[in-house]
Design a protein around this nucleic acid. Structure first.
Lengths: 336, 336
DNA sequence: CTTGCTTATATTAACGTTAATGATACGAAA
DNA sequence: TTTCGTATCATTAACGTTAATATAAGCAAG
């Protein structure tokens, strides 16, 4: 026991202070507060009391440096103020916090360069795992991420890569449900206001859209596929352009509920059925009705967290993380 | 130069690896990569190249431990999936990231105990600053926060405490604007579906509500003040109860746009004017119209970040943070 | 009565970085 | 020539924790 220390101590309480106060060694204090089995119950109690009295808060930065684990995860995605992503982040953070993990959030604004910096920032912060909704503008950030040996799970978007872990909704089925719903109501010219083609979910939803037509022996007119930026206002302009060009449509499938609602707002006068995605109205109670295709958003998020936790645990125990897990969650059509 | 190292190296690239590769000392490499002035340009360039080739990513955990700054801030609030908070977090994160800071987000669900753990987690992670929207159920977490010498800024809610730094909208004026707008339209029995009374913004908005009446020589009937939990569905029940009880009202001021929209949905049949707060529809384009009182939400968030940055800078330079800054941002009434 | 095992604690070293300080060489000024 | 500053780089120590290892005491078994 040689905690020879300067009498007074300026800053915050450290293990050393608690050690001095109790007469135990720093290591014993550390083990006691971590509830390790090799400390007697009486000692643990004494130390815990002293720590509480001194207002000790463990410095997890120092702990991380030594142990190599930070109990922090990073969530990297386009824009968390988008309700759809916001719900994910909320669920991820809550779930992680309950398991003793902190959550670092980074918005990429769908910018690949920002995404790259975000990944580097997360790695530098020594996060134990990353949940990423990739921009998918190219796969070079994916390559970067794979080159670093940090567990990560993709959410909402995926690559054709058997090594990856991801959790996505069944977007093919989703597109099929959305288009099928409208086709079965007699619509024959369904405008698809889709997301950018580099995003897997956009491609897959269009695939489902085509499938729904094919299943009913109907042809797909490619003129009805339009790509819309996700920024607000983009949709209104696109719809107005379509109207001006005189392309005739009797229904709309939109890439998100936000776009769907914007479409409804733009088409206010003419009552065209619109189907969106993500069911963001499910949690609220609004004076609008909207049909929407969605998975259980919370399930997607918590599934991603679970898988990431498994991978992080495996890594810590130096066991293999096992086979990649690729989860495709079922979607439903909601009428609100 | 004695970077005697084992030939091969398992894990990630560290300063030592770059030092070995270039023949410089670890310290020189560190200084070069941090662009300190005491390294020659040629050396900096050589080191930068080597670092890039080796895929070096600085370990900010180690850096934080040594330097005492983590370049991380924490945002602690009720529920970031609430659009109003989501916009704040989004703005805070983006603004912080641009200035080289990472953002830790913690949802308290308005639970005081969780808030306490959140603060401790943030302190343990050695964040340089905290932006907090306090639950205000009591002020014991505020006392905790003040006892730790970490800069923090309150956002959206405040205490009567001259020592605190906060950024809030002008809620008194907001309540006054909302009620005044309805009074001027001839409404005389304005139901106020307010937030819980322990929240400062709820109290202040009611103060404004009363002020608007007083300014017009009208009395306020306290039966028209109702407190509503912020969880979804609460509002519907409250409104239905009011209707059942036969309390007569000809307008509604709701504590948030979400509550306002829920009220509109509940009152669908009877067209009662409703005013909300936060103008969350401002960024979207929805097929609903809603009158709302709000500050510039992004301004609130970026103002909080600016002030926090100032305080963190002052702390780092060991200068005083100066007088507390208490910002009350103007609000406007928007008709969407 | 020793040997060996278990329990409870202490000691040592290390994580990767940066602050503080040291050292060297070179050129300018005395 | 000597001295001293300056520019450039190296060395040392420290941040606070935890893994690994050592030590001591107590007790059971041979």
């Amino acid at each position: 026991m040689n905690n020879d220390a300067p009498g007074t101590h300026s800053g915050k309480t450290t293990l050393r202070d608690v050690a001095q106060a109790t007469g135990f060694s720093i290591n014993t204090v550390s083990h006691a507060l971590k509830d390790k089995p090799d400390i007697s119950a009486a000692t643990k109690e004494r130390i815990r009391l002293a720590a509480r009295d001194l207002g000790y808060i463990a410095d997890s930065v120092a702990g991380s440096l030594r142990s190599g684990v930070s109990r922090t995860i990073a969530v990297i995605l386009g824009d968390m103020s988008n309700p759809h992503f916001g719900l994910w982040v909320r669920e991820i953070e809550t779930s992680a916090f309950r398991q003793g993990y902190s959550t670092l959030i980074i918005n990429t604004d769908e910018d690949e360069q920002v995404e790259r910096e975000a990944i580097k920032a997360a790695v530098g912060k020594r996060v134990d795992g990353i949940i990423l909704c990739p921009t998918q503008k190219s796969d070079c950030n994916l390559i970067l991420l794979k080159s670093i040996s940090i567990p990560f799970v993709l959410i909402g978007r995926r690559y054709q890569d058997a090594d990856l872990n991801y959790v996505v909704p069944d977007d093919v089925e989703g597109g099929c449900l959305a288009a099928g719903h409208l086709l079965d109501r007699g619509c024959r010219h369904i405008l698809m206001l889709n997301g950018p083609a580099h995003i897997s979910s956009a491609r897959e939803r269009y695939e489902g859209y085509c499938k729904a037509h094919a299943e009913r022996g109907l042809a797909v007119d490619p003129r009805y596929l339009l790509s819309v930026g996700v920024q607000s206002g983009q949709c209104r302009r696109t719809v107005e352009r379509v109207l001006a060009e005189g392309l005739d449509f009797d229904a709309v499938v939109a890439f998100s509920d936000l776009l769907a609602l914007e479409t409804l707002a733009t088409l206010r006068s003419r009552p065209v059925p619109v189907v969106g995605f993500d069911d963001i109205l499910g949690g609220m109670l609004l004076p609008v009705s909207l049909t929407s295709v969605a998975p259980d958003l919370n399930a997607v998020a918590s599934c991603a967290v679970s898988r990431l936790m498994e991978m992080m645990a495996a890594r810590q125990q130096k066991t293999s993380a096992g086979q990649p897990v690729q989860t495709v969650l079922p979607v439903r059509l909601y009428s609100r």
